[in-house]
């Protein structure tokens, strides 16, 4: 995977150093400003459209301007109460998405960082073969194993003390399994890339002081890898938060743990008139939590994103 590691190296390069800005000829300045303003308009147009749509009180399709006449937050109130015809409110949908997203983030990073450390630091037989296995899975889109996972999870009935008895396929637990299958190889690969950049000398010094391998991992490497762990966990969270195809194939009843993405699909897929204002308000509420985090931490996340998202 030379391609991926090259991308990462490029992105991890230190950014520019401040230098004196020369003055541009006025004509060039104006031409470039016009180009930039045009690009800004194309970038902002869909976003502004959705905001205007969400504020429109008529719940139709077309906003009459950025702030439409009689703008109100009624659409937000409606989707918070009950976004689709299903008997399930926004908060419950969001809770299900959150549970799914957090478990994907947590498990992929916890399990991933151990494997990443082994690949990054330890020499053992079969290392190359195992790494290629991880990479092969990384290249595979999640949909590629959907048929066997459906059949396999469908045949498992579990009984848990708190959650009761259920079919694994028809539950968020089963969905989480499937999503982790995509998030884990990415976490391993991404974290290995980061661990490779932590100088070996630090661990060698620890070894001289008598630290064992485990102590060296937990007390030297892990604290240093915290930024990478956070970014990888966030990317895992986003993939769980917006997960659609496993949820939509596995679950068939709202009580099994419908998520925000399913409600979104139901809103745009509805026959007849789509309630566009409600849809717009819902989209904003759905995207906001991850987009805001992303926006403020983009410097740290973009490097991880460039090689992530392989699972679409």
């Amino acid at each position: 995977m030379t391609a991926l590691s090259q991308v990462r190296d490029q992105l991890r390069k230190p950014k520019e150093i401040k230098e004196a800005e020369p003055r541009l000829p006025l004509r060039t300045q104006i031409a470039l400003q016009l180009a930039c303003v045009f690009i800004t308009l194309t970038v902002l147009f869909p976003i502004l459209w959705i905001f205007a749509l969400a504020l429109d009180p008529r719940n139709i399709s077309r906003p009459d301007g950025l702030i439409p006449p009689g703008a109100s937050l009624a659409a937000f109130a409606r989707v918070l109460a009950r976004p689709t015809s299903d008997e399930i409110g926004f908060l419950e949908l969001a809770r299900n998405s959150f549970v799914l997203a957090s478990s994907v983030a947590l498990f992929s990073v916890l399990i991933g960082v151990l494997a990443a450390y082994a690949f990054s630091r330890l020499r053992f037989r079969g290392r190359e073969a195992l790494m290629i296995a991880v990479l092969g899975v990384l290249m595979l889109p999640a949909v590629a194993t959907i048929a066997p996972l459906f059949i396999m999870l469908n045949s498992v009935r579990v009984e848990l003390p708190i959650l009761g008895q259920f079919n694994l396929r028809q539950s968020l637990v089963g969905v989480a399994f499937a999503v982790i299958s995509g998030a884990l190889p990415f976490a391993i690969w991404n974290l290995k890339g980061y661990l490779d950049t932590i100088p070996k000398e630090l661990e060698e010094a620890a070894a001289v002081d008598g630290a064992t391998r485990n102590q060296s991992f937990f007390q030297v490497v892990l604290p240093l890898a915290m930024p990478a762990l956070a970014v990888t966990a966030f990317l895992g969270f986003v993939s769980g938060w917006t997960e659609f195809y496993f949820v939509s194939i596995f679950l068939n009843d709202p009580s099994q743990g419908f998520t925000l993405s399913l409600a979104l699909n139901k809103m745009v897929g509805a026959f007849g008139q789509t309630p566009w204002s409600d849809f717009a308000a819902f989209s904003i509420l759905f995207a906001a939590p991850v987009s805001v985090v992303f926006f403020f931490f983009q410097k740290y996340i973009v490097g991880g994103l460039a090689i992530g998202g392989v699972k679409g």
Partner: peptide
Amino acid sequence: LPVIIPPIIVATV
């Protein structure tokens, strides 16, 4: 901005 919005939302928008 286009990078930070989840693709599922971009598609429906």
